[in-house]
């Protein structure tokens, strides 16, 4: 049953990806990217990664779509003329894609219980999370307690990104104009 669901979702993902590549209108691309994120979230639920699915649905399909639409509103959507066949780009894509496929070949089989990553600290977390932290959801206890440093870093990344975007985009016009008026009055 679950394999049928996975097959259907992956087929839809591939279809949406091809549609994104072939779509010339950027508005269409943004909407299709939102659909892609929702499909990805469904796939992650099928893989039992509900926390990641939630993030994918809210960030990928929600906030990203809104921000991309706002960007389309701010920028012009004229396409620069390009040469039809760019051999360097093709070569680069093939090489990078090939390297990625080669990298996945060395990974342990998908979902393998005896993979190295499942035998380092994970058994300790799974066995002792409730006893040591009183939190039943191991994802939460790992994120906020055992790996608190990492999450502090993540939060700082979000903070830095937000400050960066605000410095670049936020209009300080209103405040400046008020100050200019003050200067004028003096």
């Amino acid at each position: 049953m679950i394999s049928i669901v996975n097959a259907a979702l992956l087929t839809l993902l591939a279809t949406v990806t091809v549609a994104i590549v072939r779509q010339r209108s950027l508005f269409g691309v943004v909407i299709l990217a939102g659909a892609y994120s929702f499909l990805m979230a469904s796939l992650l639920i099928a893989l039992d990664a509900v926390d990641v699915a939630m993030t994918e649905a809210s960030v990928g399909a929600g906030i990203s779509t809104v921000v991309l639409l706002a960007t389309l509103h701010l920028t012009r959507t004229r396409e620069a003329p390009v040469r039809r066949h760019n051999l360097v780009a093709l070569l680069l894509s093939v090489v990078v894609g090939g390297a990625l496929v080669l990298g996945t070949l060395a990974l342990p089989p998908f979902g393998a219980a005896d993979a190295v990553i499942h035998h380092h600290v994970a058994p300790h977390y799974l066995a002792n999370s409730v006893r040591e932290t009183g939190v039943a959801n191991v994802v939460t206890s790992v994120l906020a307690d055992y790996r608190g440093y990492d999450t502090l870093g993540e939060t700082t990344v979000i903070f830095t990104a937000g400050i960066g975007v605000m410095l670049l985009l936020r209009s300080f016009r209103g405040r400046r104009r008020a100050r200019d008026d003050e200067d004028g009055a003096q």
């Binding site: 921000v67 975007v165 985009l169």
Partner: peptide, 8 residues
């Protein structure tokens, strides 16, 4: 804040 920045 990000959304506000884009819209403003």
């Amino acid at each position: 804040a990000l959304f506000y920045a884009f819209v403003e």
